[in-house]
Amino acid sequence: MKNPYRTQKIAFFFLFLATLLIVIPVGLIVVVIIQKGFPAINWQFLSDIPRQGMRAGGIFPAIIGTIYLVTGAIIFALPIGLLAAIYLSEYSKDNLLTRLIKLAIVNLAGVPSVVYGLFGLALFVVFFKFGASIVSGSLTLGIMILPVIITTSREALESVPYSFREVSLSLGASKWQTIRHIVLPNAIPGILTGTILGLGRAAGETAPILFTVAAFYLPQLPHSIFDQAMALPYHLYVISTQVPNVDEKIRYGTAFVLLALVLFMNLVAIIIRYKFRKKKKW
């Protein structure tokens, strides 16, 4: 029989190795993008329109397009997601319907992003005749981030102690008053975290916007929500695969801006969560 402690040593070494195999590439990816992308960033790159078939100039329209899309998505998804979370946390009973809703949320979260793209194309672009536009793209992204918002908001609501609800009800508050004045205010940091995570997800996705909004090359800003728009992730895809001879600097620069945007949102979410945990009063 082998020495169990030697076995343990070997096993732990491999577990550590597995961890390194994830951590090191992640670190490398981030470092490489920062190293090669950061020097490309200057005011002109951020504020100029793309020029010479995207081989020069900046990425301003793509940044603006992404901001429009993300804003639209959140305007759509936050109210629905929050109310759905309230339903699950405060109203639902332990029955088949609730089970179905939870299953539906799990499935929404698992639907491949390109299928969202198809769905957006069929429903918003073709059926509602919105065309490829910011509205279509925003709504598609909105439905896609709904599960993120519902799940995190629900966790935030459920982490508010049950006793607060009892106290409020015992004072003669109605159920809605209790939710509105006691539960919601105490769940806001968690809801905010979920919202920002949803924003980050929406900002980084490409497949859902491919056929619903994204413009290959549109060197101007959209005039209305029924216009097409450029978007950062799609722009990165285009200049990396569809346009030959784009300066590496522009590609890395675009990747850097997109990564920075998404990671910044995640960082904000993590900070809010951390501060909230520290400050928690109960």
């Binding site: 759905a84 109203y91 809703i101 539906a104 499935n107 198809l118 709904l146 519902i150």
Partner: peptide, 30 residues
């Protein structure tokens, strides 16, 4: 007011089921 709000909450609670069904329906349709 509370009646309306609570109905709205119920509707949004069902939204996930609605959207999953809608996605499947439109994929089938096309």
């Amino acid at each position: 007011k509370e009646f309306v709000i609570e109905k709205l909450i119920l509707i949004c609670g069902l939204a996930s089921i609605f959207f999953v069904a809608l996605i499947f329906l439109f994929l089938l349709k096309e």
